[in-house]
Nucleic acid binder design. Structure first.
Length: 275
DNA sequence: GCCCAGGCGTCCC
DNA sequence: GGGACGCATGGG
């Protein structure tokens, strides 16, 4: 086990923030997470966060995954300075305090958000979990109570690419099976190209949107934000559109041009869904 | 039965 | 470029 103390971290809000689909509440203040080929449990008591893994694994895997090098308090302070007159945004930030933008695996993020279209978060989670248990490699990790539990990693691009459409449909993804297959093939053929990873938001987003069948503007923005950590990417889904219509009279708020618009978007998304 | 869910491709203008 | 429409599936 390894513990840290930090503000601006709330595992409950992160788990329900809709950016990741494999963090789940186990009981009370204990959550499980599967990412980057690892399983971990996380317990939060106030500002004390305990991970069911070694310090080495924390430093290598979970510290970057939860973006713990970045000072979110500093970003929020800047947002308050610049957009303090935006009442809705200030309320959303206060409510969502503790949410972070995770540094998730690119391929997992791509496939997960291809699945996400016209689905509820609950339904996305079920599809992703089924896909992992059917086609993902087995991994082992430690819990708080036992030193060994078996889980499944997210499937590799090779694994998904090799599947028939009907096999993908066994995960409950419906018509998105064709999109998943196309995205996996794209990744194997061209995705590991430096173009996508070593370029800025605008270029990366355009590549994703124009080259991958089934990826439009919204999913390209989700992948840019959650899979490439371009913090200016600001996905607009039905919930964000609702906010724009109800609180901004249909016009885009000023903060959406900001370099951390994606983080602010996440606060707003979480706020409007829970309130 | 109906409507909705972290949308997109296609068709048509 | 923008608007209408169909799309698989599960939950309320």
């Amino acid at each position: 086990m390894y513990s840290i103390r930090t503000n601006d971290f709330d595992i409950r809000k992160i788990a329900y923030s809709g950016q990741c689909f494999r963090i789940n509440r186990l009981r009370g203040n204990v959550y499980s997470a599967v990412a980057m080929g690892h399983y971990v449990e996380i317990k939060q008591d106030g500002d004390e966060i305990t991970f069911s893994c070694s310090q080495e694994e924390f430093e290598k895997i979970w510290k970057p995954y939860f973006d713990l090098e970045l000072d979110y308090g500093d970003i929020v302070a800047k947002a308050v300075t610049q957009f303090g007159d935006d009442k809705f945004l200030m309320d959303a930030i206060e409510y969502g305090r503790g949410i972070r933008i995770l540094r998730q695996d690119f391929f997992e993020t791509l496939i997960s958000f291809v699945i996400s279209q016209r689905k509820s978060i609950r339904s996305i989670k079920r599809c992703v979990e089924t896909m992992c248990s059917l086609y993902g490699e087995r991994i082992a990790g430690a819990t708080f109570d036992f030193d060994y539990v078996v889980e499944h990693d997210f499937p590799t691009p090779e694994a998904l690419c090799a599947l028939e459409i009907d096999e993908l449909k066994e995960c409950g993804v419906g018509y998105r099976a064709e999109y998943i297959s196309a995205a996996a093939r794209w990744y194997l053929d061209r995705g590991d190209d430096y173009r996508v990873f070593s370029t800025g938001y605008q270029t990366a987003s355009n590549i994703l949107r124009s080259e991958i069948y089934g990826v439009g503007i919204k999913i390209a923005n989700c992948v840019s934000l959650f899979g490439l950590h371009h913090m200016c990417a600001c996905p607009i889904d039905v919930w964000m559109q609702r906010i724009i219509d109800q609180y901004y009279q249909g016009g885009l708020p000023k903060w959406m041009d900001w370099e951390y618009a994606g983080l602010l978007q996440q606060y707003c998304f979480f706020y409007i869904r829970e309130c």
